[in-house]
Amino acid sequence: MSTWYAMNVVLVQTTLTTLLLALSIQVPLRFGVFSFAGVGAFGIGGYGSAIAMVHLGWSTWPAVAFGAVVAGLVVFLLGLVVQRLTGLYMGMATIAFTLIVSVLAVNGGDLTGGAMGLYGALGEISVLQILLVVLLVVALLHLTELGGMGRRVDAVRDDPELANALGVDVVRYRQFSFLVSGLIGGLAGAITTLLRSTITPAEVNFHLVILALTAIVVGGSRSWVGALIGAVIFVWLPTWIGFLAEWERVAYGVIVAVAAIYLPLGVLGVAKDLWHRFRTREERARVAALAKES
């Protein structure tokens, strides 16, 4: 166990940070907002924490908190500005925001280290600590999936008019989703950066958007469990299909496409389906038996 763990500790860390990144995109999606600002928040959080550490000499966790809070605030303000946009227009505006963050980092001079990025921001972060942070985030998000709150969120996504009629303040809910997305994305960026000690502008790009989105859609877009499944799949996939060597990337493409085609609700949907069948197998058997008798 311990050799296995020592060899794969980075993958475990990456799974957790990827989960946070995926959640930062998934949260607004669950509120019916097609926003990719979470990836921009990832950049802001990463740079924020690295700047706090390198330039201000802060210690690890205050730096992480600083990055996350700044990212949360910026994305919240962005949310106020773009709240009129819908659908892909919202998607484009938030992608533009993300790319602008990257350009600002390139041109930030000594503060951001320009194209070279910032080096030497090595934090003291253990896997257990990341796990606690992730559990906290997930626990809070889990509350928004339950009971009345869960139904209100579903209504805000699927039928905003109805939600309004029921007295749910749709605009307020969606603004809130920006704040949460920014905070979580910022956390993901800050932790990732301090784990690997560097951040460069090239990382905050469209590919990160694609990674997060793919993880959610393949895993399951309605619940944090789906994001977790997606994060596990895409972080560990290279390990599982590494034997394909140079054909690995082709296989990756095929897997993503097949998942999109055949798993409408993601892997989570399939899992729930199987679970449901498993739980109802006795009942179904009884019904079948009854049907036979009659």
Partner: peptide
């Protein structure tokens, strides 16, 4: 199921984290 999944994940990672120091 969700809670169960969460607990299972937590358990795996904590055990792993403990073993990690010798590793």
């Amino acid at each position: 199921t969700n809670v169960l999944a969460g607990l299972a994940v937590a358990a795996v990672f904590t055990t792993a984290a403990c073993g990690g120091n010798d590793g």
